[in-house]
Design a protein around this nucleic acid. Structure first.
Length: 953
RNA sequence: GCCCCCGUAGGCCAACCGGCAGAGCCCGCGGAUUCAAAAUCCGUCCAGUGUGGGUUCGAAUCCCACCGGGGGCACCA
């Protein structure tokens, strides 16, 4: 994709001008030759094959050091190939993996592909090419691009979600979920056969109270089906006509459009597969505390799950059987509830609406309608016509009176019931008690409808706002039996909940924003469900019938529609494969497919044991790589380090945690969480330039003049900063960088530009710095004209030993902390020292060897090459990594800066083992200090050992 | 509107628990090499840490406010 760009200066293959370069200079051409050779050798020798405790790769002997499971987020192999931003994280994990391996750790590092998905399918729709063909081509290209970077993956463990042998196990996991229910009492998933047994033995009551045997077979099935963790529901879902599929809540943006394609999304009642992730809401929140994850991601997950504690309170309505149930997080403000609101879709609205307006009704409340029913109908119609966006942009409160009054259980007050769309059916009970004094939304509504406002929390001194949501003592909150007055918010909540519960008016409950996960899609290129249908519902296939393979079909497209046409029906492409759909005389296959997230929910388990055809992963292998570490209290187990972008904070990471917990509950894995430690890498960003018409111009042809203005072909252009992308004409590819500088230089450059978690701009111009460093190292060890090794057997001098050991000590910490930029700086510093001292004579072997070993994680190819040239036969991939000699870490003398009143005025050198008194004496004897004191006694004298002296006068 | 993160030389970034603002790379400048250039090599310039206050003997580091940038959430009762 970048082959058509103009040739850049200094290309390795440029025939002109490089003829007089020394023949053994570390040029891009030489680097390329070295890199190809070592990549071949690693592959031939299986250098990075990682043993398992059992199974085909069992080698318990080889599992010497502590294990480390290192994981990159599952890439999608797009048709566009990689740009230089993509491998940033992959290189970062590779550096760590290589470092750990050299230090004796047993490292598992593999790379696979999340290969189902829309782009291959859309390409198939356009061209008729089977998505598998496109997918396999793309995977092939990705693998070639990644191989060129010298990543130390165990290539035997590579999987793709589209492999039949992989999706067979995805289907198997689906069956486990389908065949399970959530036991609230034990707080875990259990097989549905155990649920059936409980019903059959009358240990559990049926929904309508009849005995289990009195139910028909179909009724029994319906009861069991309603408990399953994967179930069919006819409920409002996100229907996207433009894509022709339904979407999960997580795939819909805040303004009601599809994350992919940006098409409008409508709420429609449709029969779809759901996953009961809400059963795990509590554990998904609670276990975040046991994970070593960035706070931002934890808070996004907490936010998304939206756990809130509160109370459910029942408000009786005169003349109606069913009370209105509300959820509130502020039951302490119940005495201040002056009206109620139902969501427009609330099922009780029709039941409570009387025939006539009550006498003397406020005309603001009626919406101008003659009857309550008329007003409600009109309001509902208007509300249903508003899009999500309208509702958000227009925050003015609207609503209409139902004509009904409810009774406030705490004081018997008759309060009016409204319908208003600021209350959402999808959250809580779809009804609220409105407390305008303590809720700004209610305040806004109350003021525009002339409703009373009663303060029940005393606002703080000097409060001049409207609704007061802060902490304060309760007021106006007492009846004959209970008084909250004077209590703080938390105490008042407890007191009123106790009272409500004792009277049967309510109880404390926990609400979640999290909804169940919509799990079916109307697509071709996804995993088929291992499900067939009879007239009573879905039936699971047996494990022996797996895999259920995708049938060949003529037309891969789902039926798509006018993106704005909400009144359309999804039609999955598989429904047109008539022969395949017909399973037998009484059964038809499920024609939806699974969403793309399915495969990425468990791929990290398959890397562990990809050749296992009996199980999705062998339990012993799983326990070895992911098991809980008993030495760490509360450790949930899981991958030791998971590196990827923050964009998966909610979707993938939440779904994968959910599946993992189900598998844990059912005893299939020993770990409670999939990813023990998560690290969000930064992004590589890039500048893009537009001309006067706003069209993007080729970024690498833009030049900057001395005044800092940017021009392209002489025309001024505007610079913007952001993503790298084909349409922005600023893509730089790793292949291009390997070509021009070599993979090692490219790796080193990416790792040098900042710590792993920081985003930074790409700058091709800067890459040369990394290449120069490698050239200098090479030149220090290899004669550029003859290719002979230049190291000597001389003893290094004391300065050099100190420089070396300082570098060794520092580099250990930097690698372990993922601060590769500072590790690289220390290596450069050491090499600069060697150049200065030994540039003319050759570097002592005892310094050259550790330098090469320390470089190996960052620049493995050139390090292997130098290691071999230094006379070693085998690979350095397994170390040993140098260890610092403490003796050389302490200097003989220490130079103390002497501050006078916090400003550095002088310096003194003292022996490193000098005591505080000696340092103090040396400082006071210094002539500049004597001058500053001018005969006076210092007021205070601070000596920080090893650091400095501060004299206060 | 609410919450989180980040502001250090021209650019990218260092600075452990508060202790000399600088490790490294690029750019710029000067020089060596060259017929010249590229490449390479050597040398060198550059900020007082977004702004204002506070704590401290001492603040890039801790606290408060503001400004700027990035991200998340957004009628969730």
């Amino acid at each position: 994709m970048s082959t058509d760009t103009t040739a850049a200066p200094g290309r390795a293959d440029a025939p002109e001008g490089v003829e007089d370069a020394p023949p053994f200079r570390y040029s891009a051409a030489l680097a390329g030759e070295i890199e190809r050779r070592w990549q071949d050798r690693w592959e031939q020798e299986g250098t990075f094959h990682t043993p398992n405790p059992s199974g085909p790769w069992a080698d318990p002997e080889a599992l010497g050091g502590a294990k480390f499971y290192l994981l990159d987020m599952f890439p999608y192999p797009s048709g566009a190939g990689l740009h230089v931003g993509h491998p940033l994280g992959f290189i970062g994990t590779d550096v760590l993996g290589r470092y750990l391996r050299m230090n004796g750790r047993t490292v598992l590092h593999a790379m696979g592909f999340d290969a189902f998905g829309l782009p291959a399918e859309q390409y198939a729709v356009q061209t008729g090419t089977h998505p598998r063909t496109t997918t396999e081509e793309n995977i092939g290209r990705y693998k070639a691009q990644l191989r060129r970077l010298g990543l130390a993956h165990d290539e035997r463990r590579s999987v793709a979600t589209t492999d039949v042998e992989f999706y067979r196990w995805t289907q198997w996991i689906f069956l486990q979920i389908f065949n399970s229910w959530y036991d609230e009492k034990r707080q875990k998933a259990r097989p549905v056969v155990e649920l059936e047994a409980e019903f059959a033995q009358d240990k559990r009551r049926t929904p309508d109270g009849r005995g289990w045997c009195e139910l028909t077979g179909a009724e029994q099935r319906a009861v069991i089906d309603s408990y399953r963790l994967a179930y069919i529901s006819e409920a409002p879902v996100n229907w996207c006509p433009g894509l022709g599929t339904v979407l999960a809540n997580e795939e819909v943006t805040a303004d009601g459009r599809s994350e992919r394609g940006n098409f409008p999304v409508f709420r429609r009642n449709l029969k779809q597969w759901m996953m009961r992730i809400t059963a795990y809401a509590d554990r998904l929140v609670a276990d975040l505390d046991r994970l070593d994850w960035p706070d931002s991601v934890k808070s996004m997950q907490r936010n998304w799950i939206g756990r809130s504690e509160g109370a459910q309170v029942r408000f009786p309505v005169v003349g109606v059987d069913a009370p209105i149930e509300v959820f509130t997080t502020r039951p302490d403000t119940l005495f201040g509830a002056t009206y109620m609101v139902l969501a427009p879709e609330h099922p009780l609205v029709d039941a409570i609406t009387p025939e006539q307006w009550p006498a003397g009704v406020d005309e603001r409340w009626t919406g101008g309608a003659a009857t309550p029913a008329g007003a409600v109908a009109e309001y509902r119609l208007a509300a249903s016509r508003k899009s999500e966006l309208d509702r958000q942009e227009n925050k003015e409160k609207t609503g209409v009176f139902t004509g009904a009054f409810a009774t406030n259980p705490v004081n018997g007050g008759q309060i009016p019931v409204f319908v208003a769309d600021y209350v959402l059916m999808g959250y809580g009970t779809g009804a609220i008690m409105a407390v305008p004094a303590q809720d700004q939304r209610d305040w806004d509504f109350a003021t525009s409808f002339g409703l009373p406002i009663v303060r029940t929390v005393q606002p703080s001194e000097g409060w001049d706002g409207e609704a007061f949501t802060g902490e304060g003592p309760a007021v106006n909150s007492a009846n004959d039996e209970v008084s909250l007055n004077g209590l703080g918010v938390a105490e008042a909540k407890r007191a009123i909940i106790d009272w409500l519960a004792a009277r049967g008016h309510g109880e404390s409950v926990v609400q979640y924003k999290l909804r169940d996960w919509l799990f079916s899609r109307q697509r071709y290129w996804g995993e088929p469900f291992p499900i067939v249908w009879d007239e009573d519902g879905p039936v699971a296939l047996s494990e022996r019938e797996l895999p259920v393979e995708l049938p060949e079909i003529e037309d891969y497209s789902p039926k798509t529609y006018d993106p704005d046409d909400a009144d359309t029906e999804p039609e999955p492409p598989l429904s047109r494969a008539a022969d395949w759909v017909r399973y037998d005389a009484g059964h038809a296959r499920e024609t939806n497919t699974m969403p793309q997230w399915a495969g990425s929910c468990w791929y990290y388990l398959r890397y562990l044991d990809p050749e296992n055809h009996e199980r999705f992963v062998d339990p012993e292998v799983e326990r070895y790589w992911l098991g809980r570490d008993e030495s760490r209290p509360g450790d949930p187990g899981g991958v030791d380090l998971y590196v990827g972008g923050v964009e998966h904070a909610v979707l993938h990471l939440l779904y994968a945690r959910f599946w993992h917990k189900v598998l844990f509950d059912l005893g299939h894995v020993s770990s409670e969480e999939p990813f023990r430690r998560l690290f969000n890498q930064g992004y590589i960003q890039a500048f893009a330039y537009t001309d006067a018409r706003g069209t993007y111009v080729q970024a690498e042809e833009v030049v900057e003049d001395e005044d800092g203005r940017f021009t392209w072909n002489g025309q001024p252009v505007r610079r913007e900063y952001g993503k790298m992308g084909k349409s922005l004409k600023n893509v730089v590819t790793p292949d291009e960088m390997c070509e021009r500088y070599g993979a090692d230089t490219f790796r080193l450059y990416e790792m040098s530009t900042g710590p792993m978690d920081v985003s930074r701009p790409w700058s091709t111009r800067d890459v040369v710095g990394s290449q120069r460093f490698l050239q200098r190292v090479w030149r220090n060890l290899v004669d550029e004209r003859t290719g002979a090794v230049r190291v000597t057997d001389a003893e290094p001098d004391a300065d050099t030993l100190r420089a070396l050991n300082r570098a060794v000590a520092g580099v250990h910490d930097d690698y372990a902390a993922l601060h590769y930029n500072t590790a690289a700086a220390k290596l450069i510093e050491l090499n600069n020292h060697l150049t200065k001292v030994y540039g003319g004579t050759g570097v002592p072997r005892s310094v050259a060897e550790p330098l090469v070993l320390m470089m190996a994680p960052l620049t493995p190819h050139v390090a292997e090459e130098l290691w071999a040239r230094l006379g070693h036969d085998g690979t350095l991939a397994y170390g040993p990594f140098p260890v610092a000699d403490e003796r050389y870490l302490v200097a003989e003398t220490v130079e103390y800066p002497i501050q006078v009143n916090g400003k550095v005025r002088s310096r003194v050198s003292v022996p490193a083992d000098a005591g505080t008194d000696d340092v103090q004496a040396a400082a006071l004897a210094d002539e500049k200090v004597v001058a500053a004191l001018a005969g006076k006694e210092p007021r205070k004298l601070i000596v920080v050992p090893g650091r400095l002296v501060n004299v206060v006068v």
